[in-house]
Computed example of a mutant assay.
Amino acid sequence: MKNYFKGLCLAYGIKYTNCNPLDHLVSRCTEFISQKLDSDLSKTILKQTGSNFKKYNMIRNKKYYAHDIMIF
């Protein structure tokens, strides 16, 4: 997904760095696309998508059992 959103950023001239997390790339794309939409519902859906990616990323990085877990 990160490569997909990097590709969108490149295609539309949206600035980003390689160290930006996925949710940041989604947010940048959302800001760009939102400027071209008239529908408030579409804007809300796009913003929620970025929020969902951020939540999944937190789970993947901190709650995934492949990482060391301290149970004390």
Rank of each mutant, 00 (worst) to 15 (best):
S42C: 10
S42F: 14
F53Q: 00
Y16I: 02
N20D: 15
K47H: 06
K15T: 10
Y4V: 06
L8R: 10
K6I: 12
T49I: 10
Q48T: 14
K15A: 15
I71A: 12
N52Q: 15
I71R: 12
C29F: 11
I59V: 11
L25P: 02
Q35T: 05
C9H: 00
K36M: 04
G13T: 05
C29T: 05
S51E: 11
Y64I: 06
I45M: 08
T44A: 13
Q48F: 13
T30E: 07
L46T: 02
Y56D: 09
F53V: 06
Y65Q: 06
M1F: 08
M70A: 09
N61P: 01
K63M: 15
L41P: 02
Y16A: 03
I69W: 11
K36Q: 07
K47T: 02
L8P: 00
K55R: 11
R28L: 15
K36F: 04
K54V: 03
G13Y: 04
K36G: 00
C29M: 06
S51P: 01
V26T: 01
N3G: 04
N61M: 14
M70S: 09
L8I: 09
F53A: 07
C19N: 10
G13E: 04
G13A: 04
G7R: 08
N57E: 14
Y64D: 10
T44L: 13
I14L: 01
G13W: 03
Q48N: 11
K47L: 08
K54P: 02
S34V: 02
K55T: 12
S39R: 04
L8H: 03
R28E: 08
S34A: 10
L10H: 13
S34Y: 00
N20K: 03
M70V: 13
L46I: 02
D68S: 14
I33L: 09
N57P: 00
F72H: 09
F5Y: 13
S39K: 04
L25M: 05
K62T: 11
L25D: 00
K62N: 14
T49N: 08
Y12K: 12
K47I: 01
I71L: 15
M58V: 08
T44V: 14
D23P: 03
Y65I: 11
C19V: 13
D23S: 07
D68P: 07
H67L: 12
N52D: 14
K55E: 10
K36L: 09
C9M: 01
N18W: 05
F32I: 02
M58A: 10
L41G: 00
M70L: 14
I59L: 12
K43Q: 02
T44S: 12
E31N: 14
Y16K: 05
L8Y: 06
Y64G: 07
I59T: 10
S51I: 06
R28W: 04
I69H: 15
A11F: 12
N57A: 09
T30Y: 01
G7P: 00
S27N: 14
K47Y: 04
D23E: 14
H67T: 08
Y12E: 10
L22D: 06
I69M: 11
L22A: 05
K36D: 05
P21Y: 08
L25W: 02
N61G: 03
I14D: 01
E31L: 10
A11K: 13
L22T: 09
R28S: 11
Y16C: 01
I33Y: 04
D38G: 14
Y12C: 07
C9P: 01
Q35C: 05
K2A: 01
Y12F: 15
N61A: 04
K54L: 06
K55N: 08
